[in-house]
Design a protein around this nucleic acid. Sequence first.
DNA 1: CCAACACTTGACCGATCAGTCAACTCAGGA
DNA 2: TCCTGAGTTGACTGATCGGTCAAGTGTTGG
Lengths: 197, 197
Amino acid sequence: MARDTRERIVAAARDLVHASSLAEVSTDEVCRAAGVHKGSLYHFFPSKEALGVAVLECNWALMRAMLDEAFGDDVPPLARIDRFVDRFAHRLAVMRQALGATPGCPLGGLVAELASHGDEARTQAARVLHAWTRYFADAVTEAKGRGEVGPAVEAPAAARRLLAHLQGLALLAMAYDDPQLVLDAKQAFRLLLATSG
Amino acid sequence: MARDTRERIVAAARDLVHASSLAEVSTDEVCRAAGVHKGSLYHFFPSKEALGVAVLECNWALMRAMLDEAFGDDVPPLARIDRFVDRFAHRLAVMRQALGATPGCPLGGLVAELASHGDEARTQAARVLHAWTRYFADAVTEAKGRGEVGPAVEAPAAARRLLAHLQGLALLAMAYDDPQLVLDAKQAFRLLLATSG
DNA sequence: CCAACACTTGACCGATCAGTCAACTCAGGA
DNA sequence: TCCTGAGTTGACTGATCGGTCAAGTGTTGG
C-alpha cells in the first residue's frame, strides 16, 4: 500500500485536473477518486500546490515517454518532429473522447496555472518547458548536420519557436474543440525551420 | 450609479483575474474590490461563470482597441502586425510591473479556462479568437495584394498560425517571467508568412 | 518479540465558497 | 402625488474549501 498510494493520489488528481484545472478540483474530490482519506493526501503532500507540482511532474514523465518514443533515431530528425506532432494530436483526440471536450496541453495548462503561484512553482514549470525544448533543439541540431535545415537556423531559438507554436495550437484546439488543429504544426514547423533571408 | 456599477464589477473582476484565474478569484473578493455588495453582483450576473464571460468580453474590447490602433493603415500591413506585437509585449511588460509577475495573454488565459466550462462558454471563447484572427487575416490579404507576401500564402490559415504562435509565446513569457519573449513573434511571423516550397 | 515508524483513519476546524433573499432606496413616468 | 421597478443592501444559507489532528493500523528491522 505504501508508495502505491502516493501514485494513486497523483494519478487521480491528474485525471481530474485534465478535465478542468487545479483550482477547480478540490482535495476532497481527489481523495474520493483515489479512494484515500484526507490525512493520507496531506501525509504525502504539504499543500495542494505541492500536489499540483507533483501532477505537473507526472504529466512531464508521461510527455517525456512520448517524446522519447517519437524522437527515436530510426527516422530522420525532421520526421521525428512530425511523428511527435502526430502522437500529440492523437493523445488530444483520445482525451477528447474520454472527456467529452478537447483538453489543452496537459503540461501547458498546468504551467499556466502554476506560473501565478509564486516564483518556486513558476521556476519548476519553466524547467519542464526548457527540458521539452531540448528535444526539439537536439533534433534541429541533427537536422542541421544532415543539411535538412539551413546552417543559419539557430537550434535553441528555433526549438523555442516550435514549442511555443505547439502550445498555441493546443489552445486553439481546446477553444475550437478540434484536436486536428494541432496537426497543422507539421506545416508550420517547416516554415519556422526555413532559413530566413 | 446605474450602469456604472456593472462596469465597476467587471473591471474589478478583470484586474483580479489577470493576477491569477477566474477559479481562484471569489465573488466576495470581486465585490470587495468593486465596492459593491453580493446582491448587486447577482443582480447583473446570473452566475460566476456569466461574470467570467463578461470579463472575457471586456478583455476582448480592450484587445480590439489595441488591434484597431495597431492595424491602422498608416503603415504597410506587415508593419502593422509588427506594431501590434510591440504593443502586446509592452502591455505584458506593464502588467508585469503592476503584478510582480508576467501574466499570460488576458484573452488566452480566460479562453483556456472557459473552454472547459461547457459548450456555450467555449463557443464564446472561440468566437473571440476567430474575431482576433480576422485582424491578422485582413493584413495578410492586403500584404498579398501588395506583393509583400507570396501569392501561395493562404490568409486564413496563415492568420491562425500567427495567433497560435503569439498565444504560445505568451505562455512561455509567463512561465519564464519575461515579456520580451513575445517580441520574437516578429521574426517568427516573417517565417510563417514565407511561401512554402 | 518488541519497538519504531511509515502510513491510514475519520472526525474535525474555521474560513470561505457561490448563491439567495426580503427589505430598502430612489428616480422617472403617469 | 403615487406607483413601479431597477438597483442596492447586508444578513443569511448550506455546502465546500484547504488543512489539522489524535488515535489508530500494519510492517519492518533489530
